[in-house]
Every structure is written in structure tokens, then in C-alpha cells.
């Protein structure tokens, strides 16, 4: 798609409903599983190409990698957090212990995210970046996305492929120090119009619940 096409596309949002949110909870359960090292170079190639397009800031081409019903999700909490067993029971008191808040299951219906972009909001984001007056990206962030450790994770969903990987993203905006953002990513891939497309991406930062400087670029 070119920018003019994106301007007029997906200006309503109808697929993010209860069933869709329930699907995201299923995803979280499935992401926990042991994966098998990815043997399919085409699937790995798609994620590497996504990185390349993001680093080139080729947002319109990047948008084309996503399915008609899609999600780009950067949570603000460790969505896989579980309370660890503690030798001798939990520490007394509030210090050093895991809190109930830290292990609260993540449901975006009741929690805001750093980014929760359906197809329409992704369109907004691209058009916003292309207005030429988004000061948070003037000058733009230069990024280098590195992904590794690709594994295929089993899924019960027919027609979907789940790929988990580790990412490191170096980012620099002129006048600012280099930053490193890291974590794991999950890509749910589907076949649409004969092409493999990204239906859902989660970028799970190492420090999602901490305060971040300018995050107006894409992970």
C-alpha cells in the first residue's frame, strides 16, 4: 500500500471484540510452551524482512506484511509472569516479596498497553509518522532490529503458525544516547491471498513496567 491508500483504509474497527480478546489469552498460554528450532527459512525470512523494513522506516511496505485483521501489541507488564516458588515460603512483609499485582494475569480489556494497535490504529500510526510534524520523530529514530532464537511453538488454532524469537533493538535519535531495548517477540502467521502474513505480533520488553524515554518508533 502507498500512503494515499493507507489514508483511506481501515477507518473503522470491528474485529476487536470479546472473542478476539479471548484469543489473546489463548495466545499467552501457548507462548509459554517449549518451542522447536525453526526449520522453515521462509518463516524466519518473513520476520527478518519485517526487521529490515522497520529499520529502513518503510512503514507502508511493513503494513503490507500484516493481515487484514491484525494486532501489534507492546504490553506494559510481563504478560507471562508467574509467582515463583520460594524456599521456606514467601518473605515476610512487602519487602523483597512478589506482590499480588506482579502476578495479576494480563487481560488488555482491563489494562492499557504501551501499544495496542489494530489495523486501523496501525494506519493512524503510519500516517502520524508521515505527517512530517511528529516532533517526537524529528529527527527520526534510527533502529537496528536483531532477531534470533526462532522457535516454532505448538498451537491448537488451525491455519495459524506461532513463531517465538528473542529481539534486541538498538535505537538512536540524533542528540541522544544509544538505547537498547530487548525482549521476546511472538508472531502469529496466517496465509491470506496466497501470502504469509502477520496476524498478531507481541513485542514483550524486558522492562515493560518501567519508565521509558521516547518510544514513538516501532519495535
Amino acid at each position: 500500500m502507498n500512503l494515499d491508500e493507507i489514508l483511506g483504509s481501515a477507518t473503522t474497527s470491528s474485529y476487536v471484540d470479546d472473542a478476539y480478546y479471548a484469543l489473546l489469552q489463548t495466545d499467552l498460554t501457548e507462548w509459554r510452551a517449549r518451542g522447536t528450532p525453526l526449520a522453515d527459512p521462509d518463516l524466519e525470512g518473513l520476520i527478518l524482512h519485517e526487521n529490515w523494513l522497520l529499520d529502513r522506516r518503510a512503514y507502508e511496505d511493513w503494513f503490507d506484511l500484516y493481515a487484514r485483521e491484525c494486532l501489534y501489541w507492546v504490553p506494559n507488564v510481563d504478560v507471562l509472569a508467574e509467582e515463583p516458588p520460594t524456599l521456606g515460603g514467601k518473605p515476610t512483609g512487602g519487602s523483597l516479596g512478589y506482590t499480588k499485582a506482579a502476578v495479576r494475569p494480563h487481560d488488555p480489556r482491563t489494562r492499557v498497553a504501551i501499544a495496542f494497535d489494530d489495523r486501523r490504529r496501525l494506519g493512524d500510526r503510519i500516517v502520524w509518522l508521515r505527517t512530517g510534524v511528529a516532533y517526537s520523530q524529528l529527527p527520526p529514530s534510527a533502529t537496528s532490529h536483531v532477531s534470533s532464537g526462532f522457535v516454532r511453538v505448538p498451537t491448537a488454532r488451525p491455519g495459524e503458525v506461532k513463531i517465538r524469537s528473542q529481539f534486541v533493538c538498538h535505537e538512536i535519535r540524533a542528540g541522544h544516547p544509544v538505547r537498547t531495548l530487548a525482549g521476546w517477540a511472538g508472531h502469529v502467521l496466517v496465509t491470506e491471498d496466497g501470502e504469509t502474513r502477520i496476524a498478531r505480533k507481541i513485542a514483550a520488553l524486558l522492562d515493560p513496567d518501567r519508565t521509558h524515554l521516547n518510544l514513538s518508533f516501532l519495535l
Binding site: P91, T92, G93, G94, S95, L96, G97, Y98, T99, K100, A101, A102, D209
Partner: peptide, 22 residues
Amino acid sequence: ATVCRDDEGTTARFVCGYHNWT
């Protein structure tokens, strides 16, 4: 030393991790 090192939670006791003043 700080006696609370979590952002939020539930506890009847704040125990300093250094000498366990409570």
C-alpha cells in the same frame, strides 16, 4: 535503608532487609 522495595502489594509488616527491624 528502605523497608519497602515493591511498587505495590499487601503486607501487615515491613521488614528491613538489612537488620530485620520490622
